[in-house]
Design a protein around this nucleic acid. Structure first.
Length: 565
RNA sequence: GGAGCAGUAGCUCAGCAGGAUAGAGCAACGGUCUUCUAAACCGUAGGUCGAGAGUUCGAAUCUCUCCUGCUCCA
């Protein structure tokens, strides 16, 4: 649809420009004006000024005269631009028919051709609470999975849990010293975290504790039954706690293979590196030299023989490739790890794995609290669960105040509260860092998730009151100029999805949803939908199409769209 | 010391591959609920787009230098 219009305009211009510009050049120059008042498409004539030795304004006026206006509502020269106004009725009919008949498949594409795309996302640390910091990776990854599914990819959501490391030795020591089974059962993560913090405080006084911790971790590595049992127990309880949050967010995973899963898969990687002559000794450690790539060396094995993060990640990357033969492998991980992923790709490249090029780090900015990085150990945390509780509570209050008769108030409060938090995290460019502010995150007015949800609920309310379904064979030629911006926004949805996918940027969808909601709010606030005239069916079609697309857009973000609120 | 990211209205941010008077939201001020849910709509006010050079008919947008903040590496 959109493409057809563009090529129509290009042909119109081509007919009066002859050989001055190619169709490709014209297509490239064609732009969308800032406001609909100026037109729907515009062609700037600056480029013709030199060859024609005329002022661009004059050229625009002349050309506008020459073009056959039949396919358009009108053509107007404004300044140096030739502005094309589309035939509103015709456009409306085509768009509304397409959107409503496609239903939830409007905007679908198959550029992905069913290619597998593992997405490394969320990845919280066992025995530590999930903070606002983990939300970003979780919701960005989830949204990207939704977006990629829509355009024909097959995402595989992998929760690469932080379930291995020396901290488990410390936890075991802490548990033995201060813990009890009852306490752990009552509040698993809370108490495990307490032991961990306590351990660090105690170790300041008594450094021997660190040795004890190391010894227990060694036991764990060697498969000691007690250590293994405790580790499994801690891991299982933590996971169950995480699952509660994932349930609230409505997010599922295809794999929970965390760091521990790769314990026995690292030696082969180290062997392969050695066999390919890539390992070098440096100050006792084993490294891969990356000076040629302008990177710091990748530390594969420490002086004491312990493997490092990158070794595990290499094993994981290779494992994922062998399992999925991915077309892309995404890592939704904070921007502070950019260097790490460059190293990872560089080492894989050196190993001869061309698919390293398909590894894509999707970085995001840092959430801080009072300007400082969140740190569980320093107690500078914002617990995700608490933020969600807060948001849902506020949504509940809002409902009591504004719509006390609402039937399923608790469910809607959850949808709105959680939606507000998730949408807030997704609406800005991934790379933007922001300082956490509860008031900002749980806002329901202005450019927020609830604003979009509310717009949709209003649309649904109108449709309910209409007492009649949209007739696809009836009149769809909506000619009301007040509806024009909404109509054009609806037409932008497919291209918006592709752009969001291309840039791995859910905020593109969030901003689109806000724009659509805004233009729709403006429309229905000023125009009565439910009046009986020959345009009623067309107006209802617009309302339905808008609700459909808003719901879809929110769903791509992982946000629910209640039909009443 | 090296690298990455960022710097647009009082605050939080848009501005897609350079184009028509730089746009929203929040906060402020003023309007709109007997009429499809006021979580909304309308209006007023608010900006040397960090600084300087360059490319271009044209730069918030591209290039370079510098300044500031955050992050990472050593």
């Amino acid at each position: 649809m959109t493409l057809d219009i563009k090529s129509t305009i290009v042909n119109s211009l081509k007919s009066v420009l002859a050989d001055e510009l190619s169709a490709e050049q014209i297509t490239k120059l064609l732009e969308v004006p800032k406001t609909s008042k100026l037109g729907d498409y515009a062609f700037p004539t600056f480029i013709l000024a030199k060859s024609r030795h005329h002022a661009p304004q004059k050229i625009a006026a002349e050309l506008a005269e020459q073009i056959d206006p039949t396919p358009y509502e009108k053509i107007a020269a404004t300044g140096a631009y030739i502005n094309f106004f589309l035939d509103k009725g015709e456009f409306a009919e085509a768009m509304l028919h397409e959107i409503i008949s496609a239903g939830n498949h409007y905007g679908d594409d198959n550029v992905g051709q069913q290619g597998n795309v593992p997405i490394d996302m969320s990845s919280p640390n066992i025995a530590k609470p999930m903070s606002m910091g983990h939300l970003r990776s979780t919701v960005i990854g989830n949204s990207l999975a939704n977006i990629l599914t829509k355009i024909g990819y097959q995402p595989i959501k992998i929760n690469y849990l932080g379930d291995w490391g020396t901290q488990f030795g410390k936890l075991i020591v802490g548990y033995h010293k201060w813990g009890s089974e009852e306490a752990i059962k009552a509040d698993p993560i809370g108490n495990l975290l307490k032991y961990y913090v306590q351990f660090h405080e105690a170790a300041e006084e008594d450094p021997e504790l660190n040795d004890e911790g190391r010894a227990w971790f060694k036991k764990l590595e060697d498969g000691d039954p007690e250590a293994t049992h405790l580790w499994k127990w801690f891991r299982g309880l933590s996971l169950a706690e995480f699952q509660k949050i994932y349930d609230r967010l409505g997010i599922t995973f295809d794999s929970f293979n965390g760091e521990a899963y790769y314990n026995d898969k690292m030696d082969p990687v180290v062997d392969e590196l050695a066999a390919k002559g890539l390992l070098e000794k440096s100050q006792g450690a084993q490294i891969v030299n990356l000076t040629a790539e302008n990177l710091t060396p990748a530390l594969i094995k420490r002086t004491d023989g312990a493997t490092l993060y990158i070794t595990r990640d290499l094993a994981a990357a290779i494992d994922r490739y062998n399992k999925f033969h991915f077309v892309k492998s995404l890592y939704v991980v904070g921007s502070e790890q950019t260097e790490h992923f460059k190293q990872l790709k560089a080492v894989l490249k050196k190993m001869g794995d061309d698919w390293a090029d398909d590894i894509i780090h999707v970085p995001f900015g840092l959430i801080t609290k009072d300007g400082k990085k969140l740190s569980t150990r320093k107690g500078n945390v914002v617990l995700l669960d608490q933020v969600l509780d807060e948001a849902v509570g506020l949504a509940k209050e809002q409902i009591s105040a504004k719509n006390p008769a609402l039937a399923n108030a608790n469910q809607v409060a959850a949808q709105v509260g959680v939606g507000a938090v998730v949408f807030h995290d997704l609406k800005n460019d991934r790379m933007d860092s922001f300082d956490f502010s509860l008031g900002e995150v749980v806002r329901f007015e202005g450019e927020t998730g609830p604003y979009v949800q509310y717009s949709n609920a209003r649309a649904q309310s109108i449709l309910r009151k209409a007492q009649q379904d949209v007739d696809l064979n009836g009149t769809l030629t909506l000619v009301d100029p007040a509806a024009w911006d909404t109509l054009k926004a609806l037409a932008d949805f497919p291209a918006t999805i592709l752009r969001a996918a291309r840039e791995y940027e859910p905020s593109v969808i969030a901003k689109y949803a806000l724009r659509l909601a805004k233009t729709f709010n403006k429309y229905y606030a000023n125009s009565k939908i439910l009046v009986v005239d020959d345009q009623l069916n067309a107006r209802l079609a617009l309302v339905q199409a808008t609700s459909q697309v808003l719901t879809q857009a929110l769903s791509l973000l992982g946000v629910q769209a209640p039909i009443e609120m």
